[in-house]
Amino acid sequence: MSTTPTHALLGILDQYQPKRLLCISRGSVPAVTAYVTKHPDCELITTSEAPLPDDLANQRYDLAIVADQLEQLSKREGTELLAGLRNLSVSRMAVLVELAEAPQWETSDFYGLAMQREAHFERDERCLTLFTYDLAEYKTVPDWLNSKYWANPENFDKYWW
């Protein structure tokens, strides 16, 4: 398990190796800076604006990182930002939030957006939580969805009605 948010984000970046990276933050994110320095072929798009400007909102990214944003936004604005990214712009996302500074947010709100709690970091007075979303891991294939449970297993994946 990662000991710091920077290590956790670097692990996510190294795992997915994004070519187009969107970073939405009010300040610089050390993990993003380190990753882009190490991978100069990665196109980094940064903004502190939420909602996203139209020119950024209408593009696809390999990964989005949201940090130090949700604490400043209303719950509605934050939900629209995360859901919009998830639905239209990215297949993978990492969100770093200080829940104590964002009392309008609860852990269950992130679960409702199909996110998973990846890690929790405590240092001095700060408690950061890392949530992730990956479309490929969002839903596992149900056990019953195979030919064994069909009335005519020999026709499974053969005909389209």
Rank of each mutant, 00 (worst) to 15 (best):
residue 18 P to S: 10
residue 18 P to N: 11
residue 18 P to M: 12
residue 18 P to L: 12
residue 19 K to C: 11
residue 19 K to Y: 08
residue 19 K to P: 02
residue 20 R to N: 04
residue 20 R to P: 00
residue 20 R to M: 03
residue 20 R to H: 07
residue 21 L to K: 10
residue 21 L to C: 07
residue 23 C to R: 14
residue 23 C to T: 07
residue 23 C to Q: 14
residue 23 C to V: 08
residue 23 C to L: 13
residue 24 I to V: 06
residue 24 I to D: 00
residue 24 I to Q: 01
residue 24 I to M: 00
residue 25 S to P: 05
residue 26 R to P: 03
residue 26 R to M: 03
residue 26 R to F: 00
residue 27 G to F: 12
residue 27 G to R: 12
residue 29 V to S: 13
residue 29 V to T: 14
residue 30 P to S: 03
residue 30 P to M: 05
residue 30 P to G: 04
residue 30 P to D: 05
residue 30 P to I: 04
residue 31 A to W: 13
residue 31 A to M: 09
residue 31 A to E: 14
residue 31 A to P: 06
residue 32 V to W: 07
residue 32 V to T: 13
residue 32 V to P: 09
residue 32 V to M: 12
residue 32 V to K: 13
residue 32 V to I: 14
residue 33 T to G: 04
residue 33 T to R: 13
residue 33 T to M: 11
residue 35 Y to T: 01
residue 35 Y to S: 02
residue 36 V to I: 12
residue 37 T to L: 14
residue 37 T to F: 09
residue 38 K to Y: 00
residue 39 H to Y: 12
residue 40 P to S: 11
residue 40 P to T: 09
residue 41 D to G: 01
residue 41 D to M: 00
residue 42 C to E: 07
residue 42 C to P: 03
residue 42 C to A: 15
residue 43 E to F: 10
residue 43 E to L: 14
residue 43 E to Q: 11
residue 43 E to I: 13
residue 43 E to M: 12
residue 44 L to R: 06
residue 44 L to M: 04
residue 44 L to Q: 07
residue 44 L to P: 03
residue 46 T to C: 08
residue 46 T to F: 02
residue 46 T to L: 03
residue 47 T to C: 10
residue 49 E to L: 15
residue 49 E to Q: 15
residue 49 E to F: 09
residue 50 A to Q: 10
residue 51 P to L: 01
residue 52 L to Y: 02
residue 52 L to D: 01
residue 52 L to A: 01
residue 52 L to H: 02
residue 52 L to T: 02
residue 53 P to K: 03
residue 53 P to F: 04
residue 53 P to N: 06
residue 54 D to T: 10
residue 54 D to M: 10
residue 55 D to P: 12
residue 55 D to M: 06
residue 55 D to T: 10
residue 55 D to K: 13
residue 56 L to I: 04
residue 56 L to K: 04
residue 57 A to Y: 07
residue 57 A to F: 08
residue 57 A to L: 06
residue 57 A to K: 08
residue 58 N to Q: 10
residue 58 N to V: 00
residue 58 N to L: 06
residue 58 N to M: 04
residue 59 Q to K: 13
residue 59 Q to I: 00
residue 60 R to K: 14
residue 60 R to P: 05
residue 60 R to S: 14
residue 61 Y to A: 09
residue 61 Y to N: 12
residue 62 D to L: 11
residue 62 D to W: 04
residue 64 A to M: 05
residue 64 A to T: 05
residue 65 I to R: 06
residue 66 V to K: 05
residue 66 V to P: 02
residue 66 V to H: 05
residue 66 V to Q: 04
residue 67 A to P: 02
residue 68 D to N: 15
residue 68 D to C: 08
residue 68 D to L: 08
